[in-house]
């Protein structure tokens, strides 16, 4: 479960490493273009996080080389620039996802999980949490053997919660994850609340215990206890 992180901002790097380690990932840190280049072939990474604005080189170049060398690693571009052209270019070069700074760590983890799933799993993968089973490819969800009908957003939300199990998640991060950087805000927190309420009701109606806990004044936590 190795992840390569190429990021020149040390405090940001530290945060990412801490959070990813809590999730059980091992992190290889590179704080420059050249360090990144040296670490590219060190491990068989499940995912690489590459910052585009590095002091000694273009991150896009790194993406290109990484894609040639390790074709079965997922690549997530991290950039402070939110230019559509840059995003398109990165995705054309073979990156799997594009995350704009500043991002939520919970969102980063969800994206890493999703990219890892896409690049690593052969055949249908099943995620389980307590009584809940989710098949991300088919977009189906079961509580034990009972299928639960979820809308697209409810399904995304459930995956997000499962990726961040046992973590405190803010409603802002959920809104950003569900609607993207231009879709969030604007009363979307109310919608987060409504989606969560519906999801919770559907799961509980299907016989699952209520795993979605409110953390008063902060957000939510998806946990067994």
């Amino acid at each position: 479960m190795q992840i390569l992180i190429v990021e020149d901002e040390i405090p940001l790097m530290e945060s990412m490493v801490s959070y990813l380690k809590m999730e059980g990932f091992k992190c290889e840190e590179a704080t420059s273009y050249h360090a990144g280049l040296c670490s590219l072939d060190k491990y068989d990474y499940i995912c690489m996080l590459i910052d585009l604005n590095l002091p000694d080189g273009d991150g896009l170049n790194l993406v290109k080389i990484a894609k040639q060398n390790q074709s079965n690693s997922g690549i997530i571009i991290i950039s402070a620039r939110n230019a559509l052209e840059e995003r398109v270019k990165g995705l054309e070069l073979g990156a799997d996802d594009y995350l704009v700074k500043p991002f939520h760590l919970s969102e980063l983890v969800a994206r890493v999980h999703s990219v890892a799933r896409r690049t690593r799993s052969h055949g249908e993968e099943i995620l389980t949490f307590g009584m809940i089973r989710v098949m991300p490819e088919e977009r189906t969800c079961f509580v034990e053997d009972k299928q639960v009908d979820l809308t697209r957003k409810e399904h995304d939300l459930l995956l997000y919660l499962m990726s961040n199990r046992n973590r405190v998640i803010t409603k802002e991060s959920i809104a950003d994850y569900l609607w993207g950087e231009y879709g969030g805000g604007y009363g979307s927190y109310d919608f987060v609340y409504t989606h969560l309420k519906n999801l919770r009701r559907k799961l509980v109606d299907a016989g699952s215990p209520d795993y979605i806990k409110n953390v008063y004044g902060v957000g939510y936590k998806f946990s067994l206890e």
Binding site: L12, R81, P102, H104, T170
Partner: peptide, 20 residues
């Protein structure tokens, strides 16, 4: 706008870590 994003990213991620 570009330079602001990095310190904001640090604040956001550090607080998120602290919450855990």
């Amino acid at each position: 706008t570009h330079e602001l994003q990095t310190p904001l990213a640090v604040i956001k991620t550090k607080t998120e870590l602290l919450m855990q």
